[in-house]
């Protein structure tokens, strides 16, 4: 069974924006078009090897910063500014990667199957941090150390790279958090944290700030308290 690969929180990439996303040592240009649809391609323009996450999204295409070569959401090069009336050859294309958004997180490939309780809740992005530690170490910290017993939250694993903290099932209060881990390459692990609330409730700033503080504490713990 494949493990989920989180890339970023949903709010990391806005409409008409491209960002860099890493899955281990693979670099991807992750971008949204004007409608908000997400796309991911190889991060290298086949013209002269320019990293595409430095490019710009315009007219629902990903454009390379160097010469403005323009690629559609299938990765096909549709326009080369130096030759405006010429149709680019179909050998010029970008590899595409499947990405999906669910529960406030962007995943490479399929999102993990969510427990029903989580799927029914509303997700609000908190923050992503990247720690200089192996994923396994971070997983241990997130599943054990994110909250203490006093917080009345329990850990529920989703898969090896994702989990959540929720109140005991019998409570009427619905709140918690969802985290997803990312192998971000070069020995770094990304932790993407979202707040969970009941669908009609908005996550209060206090809850979001508290979660952010917890994440900070985990980061310090996992990286050691070195300045």
């Amino acid at each position: 069974m494949t493990v989920s690969q989180a890339l970023a929180l949903s709010n990391a990439v806005e409409c008409n924006q491209v960002i860099l996303a890493r899955a281990s040592e693979l670099e991807m240009a992750l971008w949204r078009d004007s409608t908000g649809a997400l796309h991911a391609n190889q991060n290298r323009c086949p013209h002269r090897g320019m990293r595409l996450h430095f490019g710009f999204v315009r007219d629902d295409r990903l454009n390379c910063l160097y010469h403005g070569w323009s690629y559609d959401n299938q990765g096909r090069c549709k326009y080369i500014p130096a030759h405006p009336s010429h149709t680019p050859s179909n050998v010029i294309f970008l590899q595409t990667h499947g990405v999906q958004e669910a529960h406030g997180v962007i995943w490479k490939g399929q999102p993990p199957a969510m427990p029903e309780r989580v799927a029914a809740m509303r997700s609000t992005p908190v923050r992503s941090v990247y720690v200089a530690a192996a994923l396994a170490r971070v997983r241990d910290a997130m599943s054990a150390a994110l909250f203490s017993v006093a917080d009345a939250l329990q850990h529920v694993g989703i898969d090896d790279n994702a989990g959540c903290w929720l109140p005991a099932a019998s409570g009427t209060v619905q709140y918690g958090c969802l985290y997803a881990l990312q192998d971000a390459g070069e020995g770094k692990t990304g932790i993407h944290l979202a707040a969970l609330t009941s669908p009609e409730a908005t996550a209060s700033p206090d809850w979001l700030l508290a979660l952010s503080a917890q994440l900070q504490a985990v980061q310090l713990d996992v990286e050691g308290a070195a300045p």
Binding site: H47, G49, I92
Partner: peptide, 24 residues
């Protein structure tokens, strides 16, 4: 310089087929 430092690979791939030129 911003462009130059973001081209990969740094060395020129003379013998690969992964860089496609235009007439320009």
């Amino acid at each position: 310089r911003l462009i130059l430092e973001q081209q990969t690979p740094r060395r020129i791939p003379l013998y690969e087929k992964n860089e496609i030129p235009a007439r320009a």
